[in-house]
Measured scan of single mutants.
Amino acid sequence: KYFGTAKARYDFCARDRSELSLKEGDIIKILNKKGQQGWWRGEIYGRVGWFPANYVEEDYS
């Protein structure tokens, strides 16, 4: 189950295995919004990890 999707506004390079690298334009499935302050958990291309919420724009459609 996921909470919708978000589109990456910027590139983000994961610093460890718990984080999710993003490329601008990627569409991420949002799995959890209750991580550390400002971090969401998501899935993209079969990978799961945490990413900074301010790097994405949530899709409300």
Score class of each variant (00 low, 15 high):
D59V: 14
V48N: 05
G49S: 04
I27T: 14
K23L: 04
W40E: 01
G42P: 01
R9G: 03
Q37Y: 14
Y55I: 14
T5H: 12
E58V: 11
L22I: 14
G4E: 08
K29S: 12
D26M: 06
V48L: 07
D16R: 12
Y60G: 13
S21R: 03
G4A: 11
N54S: 13
F51G: 01
A6Q: 04
K7Y: 11
F3I: 15
E43V: 06
E24C: 12
L22T: 06
S61K: 10
K29L: 13
S18N: 14
R47E: 10
R41Y: 12
R41H: 12
Y2P: 10
F51M: 01
R17C: 15
E58C: 10
N54M: 10
A6S: 04
R17M: 13
R41M: 14
K29V: 07
R9W: 03
G4N: 11
Y45D: 15
G35A: 07
T5G: 03
R47D: 08
G49F: 01
C13Y: 10
I28W: 04
V56L: 04
E19P: 04
D26S: 05
L22K: 01
S61G: 10
R17E: 13
K1H: 12
L22W: 01
R15K: 11
N54T: 12
S21Y: 05
G25I: 00
D26K: 00
G35M: 07
K7H: 09
G35H: 06
I44M: 08
R17D: 13
R9C: 07
G42V: 01
A14E: 01
A8C: 04
A6F: 03
W50L: 07
D59P: 07
V48E: 13
R41C: 14
F3K: 12
Y45N: 15
A53W: 06
A14C: 02
Y2V: 09
E43C: 07
V48W: 05
R15F: 02
P52C: 00
N54Y: 12
K7F: 05
I28V: 14
D59E: 13
T5Y: 13
E19C: 05
E57G: 06
G49Q: 01
Y10M: 15
W50M: 07
K34S: 13
Q36V: 13
Y10R: 15
Y60R: 14
K33I: 06
E24T: 14
F12T: 00
G4M: 11
K34I: 06
F12M: 02
R9F: 14
K23F: 04
G38P: 00
A6P: 02
F3S: 11
W39S: 04
R15W: 03
I30D: 02
E43Y: 03
E58F: 08
D11N: 15
Y45G: 15
E19I: 03
W39P: 02
R17H: 12
I28Q: 02
F12G: 00
